[in-house]
């Protein structure tokens, strides 16, 4: 068994412990209820504190790690963006809700870090992404909502990263989807020069 699998089992074990102690508390007779509650509170605090202090995320007992790095203004960074390509070769920035239930930044991360090496899976993935991009395009072209806004429209809870929506879509289907990496200088952003150096990472379709 791999170390990562043992880690997952340990995390599952901590969740099971939360449930077992909870059930024990639920069935405790009146006279022992406070003691059972004390044990439950103490274990709950220990499990959570371990995640917080060790910074080993154990969702739902979480380490809450976000934006923790320390950067320099004179460094460079990058952002990745999906584009749909129509039959005339024009590129259209894809709406970040296109891949719902997965937000576009998560799919970008998956492509960059977990893209399959097996050609059969790559082909399947390409067909899937093109189909999904076109489903979103068709709904947006028909003036309907996509992703999070399907049910409660503008009242929907956003994804934690607020990225600009792109509702402009072509009338005809996309024939390809491309993923670009746009590199930029952090300092240049302060100076008002929003220049990006674009690099094609992957393309699916024609």
């Amino acid at each position: 068994m791999r170390l990562a699998d043992i880690g997952e089992l340990a995390k599952l074990g901590s969740f099971a412990m939360f449930l077992i102690l909870g059930v024990r508390l639920a069935v405790a007779p009146e006279g022992r209820r406070r003691r059972a509650a004390t044990v439950f509170i103490a274990c709950f605090l220990i499990i959570n504190s371990f995640a917080g202090i060790s910074q080993i995320d154990n969702w739902p007992f979480t380490a809450n790690t976000l934006a923790v790095g320390r950067g320099r203004v004179n460094s460079r960074s990058y952002v990745t963006r999906f584009y749909g390509v129509d039959a005339k070769g024009r590129e259209w920035a894809l709406d970040p809700l296109t891949w719902s239930p997965v937000f576009d930044s998560i799919l970008q991360y998956w492509v960059e870090s977990r893209y399959p090496s097996d050609p059969r899976q790559q082909k399947e993935t390409a067909e899937f992404l093109l189909r999904k991009a076109n489903e979103g395009r068709a709904r947006l072209y028909a003036g309907r909502g996509i992703g999070f806004e399907k049910r409660i429209g503008p009242l929907h809870a956003p994804y934690w990263w607020l990225r600009a929506r792109n509702r402009q879509v072509p009338p005809e289907p996309y024939v390809a989807v491309r993923l670009y990496r746009d590199r930029f200088s952090v300092a240049a952003m302060a100076a008002g020069s929003e220049r990006y150096d674009r690099e094609l990472i992957r393309a699916w379709g024609r």
Partner: peptide, 10 residues
Amino acid sequence: FWALVNYGFS
């Protein structure tokens, strides 16, 4: 840094 790098992102 965080403000500017996020400006570059979104």
